[in-house]
Each structure stands twice: as structure tokens, then as C-alpha cells.
Design a protein around this nucleic acid. Structure first.
Length: 603
RNA sequence: CGGGGUGUAGCUCAGCUGGAAGAGCGCGUGGUUUGGGACCAUGAGGCCGGAGGUUCAAGCCCUCUCACUCCGACCA
């Protein structure tokens, strides 16, 4: 058999494109009277955010322990549909699915040092022989190891592998139901390329697949530049669903489309206020001012009667084993991620009072740059300030008219502040806005961090050994599900997009004791099901109000109500999303339902 | 990991100054109902989170502990 060198931009035939594998096998009929669907009338006390409340109320899931949930039939159907969308789009992008174990031996993590880095966030256990294992919090090491063991030649690259697997992280504070849980399902993909150019192609494929996935899920999302954090690597973007309850803070620009999360967002230095204190003034002589009990910026403002931007604050940090100082304008916040990246440390925290005293010789609140013995990282913006106030490194005193360059020197000047609403966009200069988002997906260019640590190498055309260039790509399935609910609900319950709805249609006979109504309902039920529509029949002997409330709560996109007008052959057709309701003949209702479902799945 | 809050029926919660464990909803049974979470009758359901202590007497007071939850810190 002739061996061919795979290209990252390989061509596939139209037939292959059409027939990309789908594993979907779905029950299409469901009688509500038979269903395990424990809906709750009242709001569960433990739930704070809407998605969490609705997932419990609609009987999608139940809690087993803090941050650990079981999915019930209705919830699991949607869960699997999201998985399936992810699967289809990964397959379409040429990634290959496999499944790694959830329980993993410690040695792989020890090899990259992450056995220690993860710390208590990792669920650890021992086998009967006392060997260390963990429940996998992420799988970079295992994928890398697997590929390392099997791939030798550049001919086998590029390669993208993925799995949809349960992950375990012993979060310090599980929150918001499934949004931050200790057990969750993640799609994680890993790309292996010969070089950076190959990585760029693989990354782009995954990026495009992600856009399709979140579009199909009906989500409104940002794609933002992100910090690659402990993952290491050269570039990273986050897919964040717009939501007030999101834990990612995003700076974005309507003018040019720039978006970055707040850890990453680059800050353009602002000239602090007006010409009064900044522009063209000569440097004034330094003055020492007694400022007893004046420590915070607010107190300083009162004391000096001036603007916060006429101060610079000096923050003392502990970075692993060393102590450093960081300086930002008085009204700014330090971006710890930026500082941490520069310092290349694992732990970064504000120094305790004792350390501050040791380093500055003064109590907390009087730290300043002059005479400090430790490394001093100064924010870019400070360099444009003149004659400003700093701590004197002496309890009870500040210094006035201090100037960088003349009075003290920075070890390094760089952007270390946090972006705020109204700052200049780093791309185009327009004022940026700040929003919150739920991180549902993340793509990273890892580079060779893991392949080098684990010896995942290949032989190139010249027989030379080179580390594979890797990328990794995650999507939180549970979190995506919750995010869809956050963006698609009203006061009555969930409003599923058709693409992920547990069933497409629910048929509600108003009075199940009326044979005419039941017969018509049964007919619609069987015809829709035969046509491939997923359909529920609410055949419970309940009052109509109960059935309507449940139908709304569980968010079935299309409701067909069979009531009194069945004598005239008329039923009611209602869309959950718009509330639009029309009276149609049975056949028209069936046709309309089929059309709506087709439209909803077309994306 | 720090700071708060809450643990009483399946769910949501009340329970006064320490003195016989309650309501609404849900559930079983019989009946009446049937267009937005019905009504009547009747019934089942409790280690008052756990342990210790104070007291003649503890759901209630004290100590410890566990769980859940919120805020913060932390978080590929």
C-alpha cells in the first residue's frame, strides 16, 4: 500500500463530507405518564442562579453532593445532544474520537510537575498496592504520552485527537450548580503538528469548529484573547457566553471588534489628568509630609485634597520564595496575571504585614519606591506621571513631588494594570466596554511545553528528532448546557433551541377523558414520530394548567394543544420561544411542526 | 483557606420565654372536576443533621462535629 503524506489541509471527497459519522440513536416517542420527570413547583433553596434553579425544577438533574450531580432522563437527552453537536463538528474538522481512562496513574503528572501544581484541586487515590492515582482533571499528559509511544514519523502528522470524558476537580468552592462543579464532562482535543505553521492550521480548524458548535447551540458569545495561564504556551482564546453571572471579565471594543479577558487585556497608558500635574511641569523638589494614620488612597485624597491619579501605590508581593514590589497609579488595580507572567512564578500573593515591614521598614500603608531593596516592577502608566505622592517607607510619612528616573529607578517598566471600562482600546483607541461571560470553550496553542517535558518527538524529513508542536482545545459540556439556559429562559422556565431540546414537540390533550381529543393527540403523536420528530404526549390525567406549566418549564420548543375545537378538526400550535399561537387543522399542525424542526436543525 | 448564613415531613418553610412536633404543596385511597400549578373527604409520612453537656424537662440553651449555602481568596 502506498503511503501518503497527510496534509493538514487534506481534501476529502464530497461523499466523505456528507457521510461524516453520526452516532445519534434517539428515542422519538415519549408518554409523559410513563416518564421519570420529577418537576418541582417551588424553587429549590440551594439554587442561586437561573440555570441551576431551572435544571432542578425541570427535573433535568439532582444533586448528590456539593458540586456533584446526576443527570435525569430529560436532562441527559439535552446533554447528549450537546455532546453530539460537539462530536459532529470535531469529526467534520478531521479530529478523531477516542476515550482515555478517567482514573490516571500519578507518574504522568509527576513528569510534568503538575502532580504538585494541581495540589489539592486534584482528587487523589491509591490502589491496593499503595500506588498513587488521580481522577483526571485534564488529560494533556496522557494524550501526549499516548502519541509519543505510537508516532515516530513526520508522515503521521498532523494529528488531532479528542475525547468526551468526565473530569474531576476538587474545587474549593463549587458554585452555580453545574457551572462550576467538581465532576463535569469535557470535550478535550489535542493537536500534534510538525511545526508552528501546522499548529496554526490545526488551531484554526478547531476555532472554526467551535464557532459552528456554539452557533448550533444557539448561543450568543464572545471570542476573546485569553491568558494561557498555567497551561503555558503561546496563544489562547476563550469562547465566552455573554452573561451577568459569568466569572470571566471581558473587555471589548464595539468599534473594532477587539475582545480580551481582563487578565489578558492590554492597557494603554493614560496621561493622568490635565496639564496641571502631568504636562510640561518642571520637577519639583521632593517633600516629606507627615501623614499619620493616612494609609489608603481614599484617606490620602482627603488629606492632600487631590485626585487619586496624583498618587502611585506600591504593592508588596510574595512570588514563590521572593518578595517583589509593584507600582501602579493610585486609582488603578494591579493585574496579578500580568505580574505573575513576568515573574514566572507559581504562587503570587500580597505579602503579609510582617513581610511588608521587613521590606519597607514601615507599617502597611506607607510603602514607596524610594530606598526599596527588592525588585520593583512599575506600570507603564506611572512613567508619564510627574510630581506624584508615594509612601515614604517610614510609618506616618509620605513623599510629595516624587519623579521616576530622578528619585528612583524601576527594575522593569511594563503593563501590569487591570483594564477598566472606558480605557482606550489597544487596537483602535476607542473606549472599551466591560462585560461578563461564561467560559464554555478555550483553545490554546501549547507549543512544545508538554512534548518536550514528556519527550514526544518525531523524525523529520532529514531524520532529525524534533518535538511535536501541540495545541489543546476544551469545551465544558455541562457548562454549555447551563449557559444555554442562562440565555434562553423566561419567568415560566427554559426555552430550548430546537437543536438541543430534549424533545421537539409536546402534545397536550386538554382533557384526556375526551376520546376525540385523545384520538387526535395520538394521531399527531404517531405521525410526527414516524416523520422523525421527537415528540412527547402528555397523557397524564392532570388539569390543563399543570400540563401547560410543565411544558413551559421543561422548555419544549413546540406545543400542540388538543382541546374543545377538535370537533371542528382544529388544534392549537404554539411556539415556546415567541409565544406565537395559531389554530390549525391537524394536518397543518403536523406539517408546521415538521417544518419548524427542520428549520431548527438546519444550522 | 478566611468570614457569614442555614440544617425540622419528598419540596418550601413556621415553631414565642425551655413545657404534648406544625402548615402549604406533593404523595396514597374514594369522589367531584378539566383551557394556565382544582375541590371535598380520608390517610400515610419525622433519630428536629450527628455527638456530648446543662436541666425535672431541649427542636429551642452550651460545646464539639458534619453537611449544605453565600461573600471573599483561589482556580488548565
Amino acid at each position: 500500500m502506498k503511503r501518503t503524506v497527510k496534509q493538514n489541509n487534506q481534501k476529502v471527497t464530497a461523499l466523505e463530507e456528507d457521510c461524516h459519522l453520526t452516532l445519534e440513536r434517539t428515542v422519538r416517542f415519549m408518554r409523559v405518564s410513563q416518564m421519570f420527570m420529577p418537576t418541582l413547583r417551588e424553587m429549590p433553596a440551594e439554587a442561586e442562579v437561573v440555570s441551576h434553579q431551572l435544571m432542578l425544577r425541570a427535573g433535568l438533574m439532582r444533586k448528590l453532593a456539593s458540586g456533584i450531580y446526576s443527570f435525569l432522563p430529560l436532562g441527559y437527552r439535552t446533554f447528549r445532544k450537546i455532546e453530539q453537536i460537539v462530536r459532529e463538528e470535531m469529526d467534520r474538522a478531521g479530529a478523531q474520537e477516542l476515550l482515555m481512562s478517567a482514573i490516571l496513574p500519578a507518574e504522568y503528572y509527576q513528569a510534568t510537575g503538575r502532580w504538585e501544581v494541581f495540589g489539592p484541586d486534584m482528587f487523589r487515590l491509591k490502589d491496593r498496592n499503595g500506588r498513587d492515582f488521580c481522577l483526571g482533571p485534564t488529560h494533556e499528559e496522557i494524550f501526549t504520552e499516548t502519541v509519543k509511544n505510537e508516532i515516530r514519523s513526520y508522515r503521521a502528522l498532523p494529528l488531532i485527537l479528542y475525547q468526551i470524558q468526565t473530569k474531576y476537580r476538587d474545587e474549593r468552592r463549587p458554585r452555580f450548580g453545574v457551572m462550576r462543579s467538581r465532576e463535569f464532562v469535557m470535550k478535550d482535543a489535542y493537536s500534534f503538528d510538525r511545526d508552528e505553521a501546522g499548529l496554526d492550521l490545526s488551531y484554526k480548524k478547531m476555532y472554526d469548529a467551535y464557532c459552528r458548535i456554539f452557533d448550533r447551540c444557539g448561543l450568543d458569545y464572545f471570542i476573546v484573547d485569553a491568558d494561557s495561564g498555567a497551561m503555558g504556551g503561546s496563544g489562547s482564546q476563550e469562547f465566552a457566553v455573554k452573561s451577568e453571572i459569568g466569572e470571566s471579565v471581558i473587555a471589548y471594543c464595539d468599534a473594532c471588534g477587539y475582545a480580551a479577558n481582563d487578565e489578558k487585556a492590554e492597557c494603554i497608558p493614560d496621561v493622568c489628568c490635565d496639564d496641571e500635574c502631568c504636562m510640561g511641569n518642571d520637577m519639583l523638589p521632593v517633600e516629606k509630609v507627615a501623614t499619620p494614620d493616612v494609609r489608603t488612597i481614599e484617606e490620602l485624597m482627603d488629606f492632600f485634597g487631590s485626585q487619586p491619579c496624583e498618587f502611585a501605590k506600591t504593592l508588596i508581593y510574595k512570588a514563590d520564595d521572593r518578595v517583589v514590589a509593584a507600582m501602579v497609579r493610585g486609582d488603578r488595580e494591579l493585574n496579578e496575571t500580568k505580574l505573575q507572567n513576568y515573574l514566572n512564578c507559581i504562587e503570587l500573593e500580597m505579602a503579609d504585614a510582617e513581610t511588608v515591614k521587613e521590606v519597607t521598614g514601615a507599617d502597611v500603608g506607607f510603602a514607596g519606591p524610594i530606598g526599596l531593596k527588592v525588585e520593583l516592577i512599575v506600570d507603564l502608566e506611572v512613567t508619564s506621571m510627574k510630581n506624584f505622592v508615594v509612601g515614604a517607607n517610614e510609618t506616618g510619612y509620605h513623599l510629595k513631588n516624587v519623579n521616576i528616573g530622578r528619585d528612583f529607578k524601576a527594575s522593569v517598566v511594563m503593563d501590569i494594570r487591570k483594564i477598566v471600562e472606558g480605557d482606550k482600546c489597544p487596537k483602535c483607541g476607542a473606549p472599551v466596554k466591560i462585560a461578563r461571560g461564561i467560559e464554555v470553550g478555550h483553545v490554546f496553542k501549547l507549543g512544545t511545553k508538554y512534548s518536550e517535558a514528556l519527550g514526544c518527538v518525531y523524525l523529520d524529513e532529514n531524520g532529525k528528532e524534533r518535538p511535536m508542536v501541540m495545541g489543546c482545545y476544551g469545551i465544558g459540556i455541562n457548562r454549555t448546557m447551563a449557559a444555554i439556559i442562562e440565555q434562553n429562559h423566561d419567568e415560566n422556565g427554559i426555552i430550548w433551541p430546537i437543536s438541543v431540546a430534549p424533545y421537539h414537540v409536546i402534545i397536550v390533550p386538554v382533557n384526556p377523558t375526551e376520546t376525540a381529543q385523545m384520538e387526535a393527540a395520538e394521531k399527531i403523536y404517531s405521525e410526527l414520530g414516524k416523520a422523525g420528530v421527537e415528540v412527547m404526549l402528555d397523557d397524564r390525567n392532570e388539569r390543563p394548567g399543570v400540563k401547560f406549566k410543565d411544558a413551559d418549564l421543561i422548555g419544549i420548543p413546540i406545543r400542540i394543544t388538543v382541546g374543545k375545537k377538535i370537533g371542528e378538526g382544529i388544534v392549537e400550535f404554539k411556539l415556546r420561544k415567541t409565544g406565537e399561537m395559531v389554530e390549525l387543522s391537524i394536518d397543518e399542525a403536523i406539517a408546521r411542526a415538521k417544518a419548524e424542526v427542520e428549520k431548527g436543525l438546519a444550522l
